[in-house]
Amino acid sequence: MKLLAPSILSADFYRLGEQIEACVRGGADILHFDVMDGLFVPNISFGPVVLESIKKHCPLPLDAHLMIVEPDRYIRDFVMAGASMVSVHIEGNHHIHRTVELIKSLGAKAGVVINPGTPLHLLEEVLYYVDFVLLMSVNPGFGGQTFIPRSLERIRQLKEMIGRINPSVLIEVDGGIKEDNIRLVAEAGADILVVGSGIFSHPDVEAQTRKLKSLLNVSEAV
């Protein structure tokens, strides 16, 4: 089953609750949070207080992508605020196994994130422990970027690697996914597709969410 995960980084924050409700009505499966601290990436977004507020009203699982330095310091805060999925970057994390085990010990699904320029083979050992891999198809830090075409081949290669090591691991893909490429990304092997501006830049968020979800359903039927 292919899952659609709207990323609120691209939402209109003045209308955030309204737009999240539109995503839910449109059939979204997960709500994605891009957490940035201005150090790991050159941007600042939001923290666990925002996630906690949304959790009180949103029925979807909340997925926290931590683009921050020293993520271990904040993982508990995000899980306690309501995140049921937490992912951290392989880049710069010298104790990735310990971090993954921390996430799982708190009752959340644990993911590892990999940037476009990072070799996939660095994931091989951690695949034995994680629940999902978040493959970035843009360089992290900003919404609205263009999908890197090479990402399709990286998804296929990652799918093959997972098949050899731990077939239960899901592939999540984030960055530049729009209606003109969402089926290609799904057919390459993505299980969870994160979409930001491809949903929230449209005047009718509910209709656009429903359209993208229908495209994913078609890709599964092929």
Rank of each mutant, 00 (worst) to 15 (best):
V218K: 10
A190Y: 05
H97R: 15
G176C: 05
L3M: 11
E101L: 09
L134K: 00
D63G: 09
A28N: 13
F147K: 01
V24I: 15
F132A: 02
H121A: 08
V49G: 13
R150I: 09
H32F: 09
E160V: 08
A11T: 08
T209Q: 00
P149V: 06
R73P: 00
I199F: 14
A207L: 08
M136Q: 05
D12R: 12
R164H: 13
I199K: 15
G111P: 01
G144V: 07
S214E: 13
P61G: 11
G163L: 12
I96Q: 02
K2T: 15
H89L: 08
G196R: 04
N181T: 04
G111T: 03
A22Y: 03
T146G: 08
E187C: 11
N217F: 05
I199Q: 15
V112H: 00
Y128P: 01
T209P: 00
L31S: 12
E52W: 03
P167K: 10
L123E: 11
R164D: 11
L51M: 14
S87M: 01
C23H: 10
G92A: 14
L193T: 03
L216T: 04
P119V: 00
V222S: 05
L216K: 06
V185Q: 02
L134F: 00
V88L: 11
V49P: 12
I54P: 08
M136P: 02
L193F: 14
V185W: 01
T146K: 15
N139C: 00
M36I: 04
V218T: 07
A22K: 13
I192C: 01
I177Y: 12
P167Q: 07
V169W: 15
D77H: 15
S53V: 13
E172A: 15
V69K: 10
S7Y: 02
D29H: 13
L3D: 00
L123Y: 11
L120V: 06
T99G: 00
S84D: 05
R164E: 12
D12Y: 07
H94I: 09
I165H: 09
H57V: 15
V50K: 07
N115R: 11
F78S: 06
G143Q: 10
D191S: 14
L66A: 02
K178F: 01
L212P: 00
N166G: 04
D12G: 04
D37R: 11
Q145L: 06
T146D: 14
M67H: 09
G141L: 04
G111I: 02
G38S: 00
L9W: 10
P140F: 02
R76P: 12
K178W: 03
P48F: 03
S53Q: 15
Y74D: 11
V49D: 14
D131V: 04
L106V: 07
K213G: 00
I20W: 04
L102V: 07
I148C: 05
G189N: 07
P140T: 01
S201L: 05
S214V: 01
V126D: 08
M1G: 13
S219N: 02
L62H: 13
D37Q: 06
P140G: 02
G27W: 09
H97C: 10
L62D: 05
L152C: 05
L120N: 11
I103K: 09
D204Y: 09
H94Q: 10
L212N: 02
M80K: 14
M36A: 12
N139G: 01
E160K: 10
Q19N: 03
Q19A: 03
S137M: 14
L158N: 03
V138S: 01
V50N: 04
I162C: 03
L16G: 04
L9P: 10
G176V: 04
